[in-house]
Amino acid sequence: MKTIIDITSLKKDYHVGEVTVHALRGVDLKINEGEFVAIMGASGSGKSTMLNIIGCLDRPSDGIYLLDGVNVAGMSKNERAAIRNLKIGFVFQSYNLLSRTSALENVELPLMYNRLISTKERREKAIAALEAVGLAERMDHMPNQLSGGQQQRVAIARSLVNDPVVILADEATGNLDTRTSYEIMSLFQELNSKGKTIVFVTHEPDIAKCMTRSVVFRDGHIIREEDIKNRLNAAEMLTALPVEQD
């Protein structure tokens, strides 16, 4: 199986005035193609820093990070932008859709920064991505005409559109109610079953149980790493939820 993320003794220090904060103190992590990994931990544990580095938004202070076989640890700002554009899809807690911009144009956004993709190709890919999240018929809607769950689906379509090697989700269900959370998780599971590699930061154990492996951070170290047994199926959970009669 192909290794997508291969991290060896990764360190990240922040300098806040005189004080040096060690956010990551030597982390080793391997994520293979087709995995659905939950990154867990309390706030300040280093999980956000980890996600930023995996997403090439930040660079490590020390260590090796091979993304899809390429060492990205020492890359410049522009090189990292190009890597993000081609290999990574982000899904955020607060969706981060452009307001007063249609769903379709929101999904097209990552491809706008790729000069090799024509307008026609961009449109086709964006429509395909919206179809994959079941929102093809809403492509002309503005974000404020969509529910929270639908907005997050648009955001997921956006993360898919460049066909990334890994999708990084940061508390992607954090702003959603239980029902919608399971809807979104069922979408993620569906994408995962089609072979997408997903790294998902969450602090909800229920959500983490939908994934294949969990990695728990504390104080800049990985303290526990285990395959998830009795994996939950989000679609089944959804049907099991009591229907609110109000």
Partner: peptide, 10 residues
């Protein structure tokens, strides 16, 4: 921030 995260360069 979003534009940068999806690959927008400075």
């Amino acid at each position: 921030g979003l534009r940068m995260s999806v690959g927008g360069r400075s």
